[in-house]
């Protein structure tokens, strides 16, 4: 037995939030993207309810444009922890005519993901969706509450947010509303990496430096893949790269890197000059990109 517990304050806060979700909602779900943030959330949930199993399912909104590594990783994790995984796919919604594919040079399925997510929330009647968004990621995220209320259409009304005082979380909602919950709101990218290191958490291989067929556009590095639109004069070559976020392959840019271990990644981030979201093309579309997407129900 250990003598005195010395808990990290960000970790105790996240665990406190996860427990409030289970206590205050009937039907929560953890939105699992396969990225490092949602993987860390799974670990936090394990800790929050141990020795019981995580008392909610995971849901992956699959754009169909995945890095194969992340899907393999997802399935292993779910199997290991004996969790229930729900997958809802953008492709199905396109096939059913509910969503229409974007076209052209900057096309991605990021916006369509919102549609599929909202349909899934409706289908399963989830009242709380736990996500790994962090307030340091982007300006609009900086205003997000920990319990963020969405209306029937998944919309975020940023001007009418409930005040959140101290650590008191008010999860009371009307029928039809649901809540997005952000337990690692107060973490930074570096906090997440340090947690992964301390906890020895496994993450998909694409976070580490590897050789990959890529091409450059607008100063960013894109994966050569059948899912990524490429002009004929855009030439691919092999580069040593890694990814800082894991999303839809068509809108997640790589960074040149030799960081092939967690320690090196942490070092790299400490002196890095590109912010994490700088590597996601869909935010560059306009200054207010994230805010507009959030108002429409994007996670």
């Amino acid at each position: 037995m250990n003598s005195i517990l010395n808990q990290n304050s960000l970790e105790s806060e996240a665990i406190y939030i996860l427990r409030e979700v289970v206590a205050q909602f009937d039907n929560p779900v953890l939105l699992f993207s396969g990225g490092k943030d949602s993987i860390s959330l799974v670990r936090l949930a394990q800790k929050a309810f141990y020795p019981a199993k995580i008392p909610f399912p995971l849901m992956h909104i699959d754009t169909g444009h995945n890095f194969p590594e992340t899907i393999k990783f997802r399935d292993q994790l779910v199997e290991e922890l004996g969790l229930r995984l729900i997958v809802r796919s953008v492709q199905d919604d396109i096939d059913r005519g509910i969503s229409v594919e974007e076209k052209g040079k900057y096309s991605s399925r990021n916006l369509l993901q919102t549609n599929t997510l909202l349909n899934a929330i409706d289908e399963f009647k989830f009242d709380a969706c736990i996500g790994g968004a962090r307030r340091d990621e982007e300006k609009a995220r900086a205003k997000e509450r920990i319990f963020s209320i969405r209306n029937d259409f998944g919309e975020w009304d940023e001007k009418n947010q409930r005040p959140e005082v101290f650590d008191m979380l008010n999860g009371k909602i009307d029928i039809g509303q649901n809540v997005r919950v952000f337990p690692i709101s107060n973490w930074t990218e570096l906090d997440v990496w340090e947690y992964i290191k301390r906890e020895n958490i496994e993450i998909p291989s694409i976070y580490f430096a590897h050789d990959r067929e890529v091409f450059e556009r607008d100063g960013l590095i894109w994966t050569a893949s059948k899912y990524v639109y490429k002009d004929e004069d855009e030439i691919t070559k092999t580069k040593r790269v890694r990814f800082r976020t894991v999303g839809d392959i068509s809108c997640t840019a790589a960074v040149e890197s030799n960081a092939d271990s967690i320690e090196k990644i942490i070092e790299e981030i400490r002196d890095s000059a590109i912010s994490e979201r700088g590597a996601r093309i869909d935010d560059k579309r306009s200054e207010a990109a994230m805010e507009t997407r959030k108002q429409q129900g994007y996670f």
């Binding site: 037995m1 250990n2 003598s3 517990l5 808990q7 406190y16 427990r19 800790k47 141990y50």
Partner: peptide, 17 residues
């Protein structure tokens, strides 16, 4: 007093246990 799979003799203010 448990935190995850470990037990402790003492847990201070601020700990989720």
């Amino acid at each position: 007093i448990h935190f995850f799979n470990e037990s402790f003799k003492e847990a201070p203010a601020g700990s989720s246990v």
